[in-house]
Structure formats: structure tokens, C-alpha cells
């Protein structure tokens, strides 16, 4: 299982803050996970479409498209940050 965390605008657009998912074995990278989630359609497809500014963190570290994901990871999806 993977724990997903959605933050800020993304949490509101997707209507949920956290969920646990069990993606198929071939979903092994951040890019593959985003594509898999996007295939749910609706708000998921809209918010996670290529070109949308979605940042991803794996276990509290900023991740890139090829960052591997593994069972037990906490993966957060969020818009570009606007603090300070």
C-alpha cells in the first residue's frame, strides 16, 4: 500500500486529503503513478494532466519524474509552493 497526501489547491480540487492505494506492480515511478491516478478520469485527469504544475514528494523529499515508488511510501502531490 502507498499513502497519498494531497495538499492545498489539489486537495480541494480532488475532494480528498489522504488515501491509501495499492497500484499495480508496473507502477514503479512518480510519472507512472501520476498516469495511473489520472486514468481515474474527471478531476484526476484534469488536475494531473501533463503540463499541469504538480509537485511530488516521496517520503518528505522532493521527487522527480523517475523517482521510484515502493509499498509503504508516503507520496504527496501539491501545487508549486507560495510561502514566505
Amino acid at each position: 500500500m502507498i499513502r497519498l497526501v494531497y495538499l492545498a489547491r489539489l486537495r480541494e480540487a480532488l475532494g480528498t486529503g489522504t488515501e491509501s492505494v495499492d497500484p499495480p506492480r508496473e507502477v514503479g515511478t512518480v510519472t507512472a503513478l501520476l498516469e495511473w491516478l489520472s486514468s481515474r478520469g474527471g478531476a484526476w485527469r484534469r488536475e494531473l494532466a501533463p503540463g499541469r504544475a504538480v509537485r511530488v514528494a516521496v517520503n518528505h523529499d522532493i521527487a522527480g519524474p523517475d523517482t521510484p515508488i515502493r509499498p509503504g511510501d508516503e507520496i504527496a502531490l501539491f501545487p508549486p509552493v507560495t510561502g514566505g
Binding site: L7, A8, R9, A57, I62, A76, F78, P79, V81, T82, G83, G84
Partner: peptide, 14 residues
């Protein structure tokens, strides 16, 4: 630190 915080620290404003 301020410049880096603005682009790297996970905060969001509404």
C-alpha cells in the same frame, strides 16, 4: 534562506 524558502519550503497561501 528567504529566496530558497520561497521556492522550496512547502507552504501554500489562500
Amino acid at each position: 534562506i528567504m529566496d530558497d524558502l520561497k521556492t522550496r519550503a512547502p507552504f501554500w497561501k489562500k
